[in-house]
């Protein structure tokens, strides 16, 4: 039997963060997620990382002549936006591949984030 969906009052409160990734070479979604988690655990430890509850909602490639660019949306728990943004700012490389992540904004819903930054 399927579990009943939690009522909204009992669900965890979340925030969505829009970001752009500029990289030298291509990065897969799995690689990016793995390195984000690694960085978060490295910076804040396992206990705080469990509270952040990171989830990569969307990750798409954008056409850019200068360098490989991706746009994405990241979900985290409300109150841990600062930790998530710091983690994104501290990403420097995946193996030999240099990259930089620039966060655009934070919002309570994907809809409003998409309206502002056109990420989906």
């Amino acid at each position: 039997m399927k579990l009943k969906i939690l009522p909204p009052t009992l669900r965890e409160k979340k925030r969505y963060i829009a970001f752009y990734v500029y990289s030298e070479h291509e990065i897969t979604k799995n690689d990016f997620t793995y390195h984000m988690w690694n960085k978060l655990i490295g910076l804040y430890g396992e206990v705080t990382s469990s509270d952040v509850n990171l989830w990569l909602v969307s990750y798409k490639r954008v056409s850019n002549q200068d360098r490989i660019t991706y746009k994405g949306i990241l979900k985290c728990q409300r109150g841990y936006e600062k930790e998530t943004l710091t983690m994104l700012a501290s990403l420097t490389n995946i193996k030999e591949n240099k990259l930089v992540v620039q966060s655009c904004g934070t919002s309570g819903t994907i809809k409003s984030l998409n309206r502002k930054y056109d990420l989906l």
Binding site: Y22, E24, R67, L85, A89, V100, Q102, S103
Partner: peptide, 12 residues
């Protein structure tokens, strides 16, 4: 280019 951080990121 990959080492440059925005003011917001530097503050964080």
């Amino acid at each position: 280019f990959y080492d440059v951080r925005s003011p917001k990121n530097l503050i964080l």
